[in-house]
């Protein structure tokens, strides 16, 4: 289902403009990369989608006309930048269970959802641990597991790589890719250009304004090292690469 931002404006309590006006149509199943400088309005956009912020003017609605306040409670899942804000269970198993029980239609289904979410995030061995005994990265994965158990149609992920080591980042990337392939709509908010390469749409949010651009535009603003490297290498070697594949380039520059 499409998500339509129709002249959406959000203001701070002081009256100062926080975001907008935003006019945007995101099609169901798209992966949208949201980036831009600190304080630009990216997290405000996430809060708007999650429903905890209401626009002062304009409308956020689904393609069939249903406005944000009437969306089903499990329709949008929001993985926040600060995982401690959303891990509330006595232990990790309990926390993911809470999400499953809230959103699943039966107890049996909730057990299956919890089991799958803990498996996908690699947290099965830590199920009995209390949140305060986990590291920042483990806690972030726990927050992701609880949202996975929600089975939301739209996922808003604020800084998905937060506090994660390389294995955790890879795991989260694969999970998000799989969800996108299942038809879920993703909003990935990050300063990390890696996510831009996975996305269908690219938004630059600065001073409350949302600007859509192509992948190259976003990559240039974020100074995408890989694209700079590939472009430079093609110019110097005078060999056009069909695709910027690591193994192809590796063999070209060091064939031993």
């Amino acid at each position: 289902m499409d998500i339509i931002f129709d002249h959406v404006v959000v203001r701070y309590d002081t009256g100062k403009m926080a975001l907008g006006p935003v006019n945007l149509v995101v099609h169901g199943g798209e992966c949208v990369f949201v980036t831009g400088p600190n304080g630009g309005g990216k997290t405000t956009l996430a809060r708007l989608l999650s429903g905890i912020l209401i626009p002062v003017s304009g409308e956020l609605r689904m393609g069939d006309g249903i406005v944000r306040s009437e969306w089903p409670p499990d329709y949008v899942g929001w993985i926040q930048q600060e995982p401690e804000h959303q891990v509330v269970g006595a232990n990790i198993l309990g926390d993911v269970n809470l999400s499953s029980l809230w959103h699943a239609s039966s107890y049996r289904q909730s057990v299956a959802r919890t089991r799958q979410a803990l498996k996908d995030t690699g947290l099965e061995p830590l199920g009995a641990r209390a949140a305060e005994t986990l590291s920042g990265g483990e806690l972030h994965l726990a927050a992701i597991a609880a949202i996975m158990a929600q089975h939301a149609q739209v996922l808003v992920v604020d800084e998905p790589e937060t506090m994660l080591d390389a294995s955790g980042q890879l795991r989260v990337e694969k999970m998000l890719q799989a969800l996108n392939e299942q038809g879920k709509t993703l909003f990935v908010i990050s300063h990390n250009r890696i996510w831009g390469r996975l996305a269908d749409r690219h938004l630059w949010v600065q001073d409350g304004k949302v600007e859509e651009m192509d992948q190259n535009g976003a990559a240039q603003r974020l100074a995408d090292d890989w694209m700079t490297f590939c472009d430079g290498l093609q110019a110097i070697t005078d060999r056009p690469f069909e695709s910027c594949e690591v193994s192809q380039i590796g063999k070209l520059i060091w064939p031993f």
Partner: peptide
């Protein structure tokens, strides 16, 4: 890693190419 430049550097170092450990951090 999910960073292609980092992946390339690992591959080069694994094949004993004369590049520095930190070369990949800047394009």
């Amino acid at each position: 890693t999910v960073n292609p430049l980092e992946q390339l550097w690992r591959e080069l170092l694994n094949r004993n190419a004369p590049v520095s450990w930190r070369g990949w951090i800047d394009a």
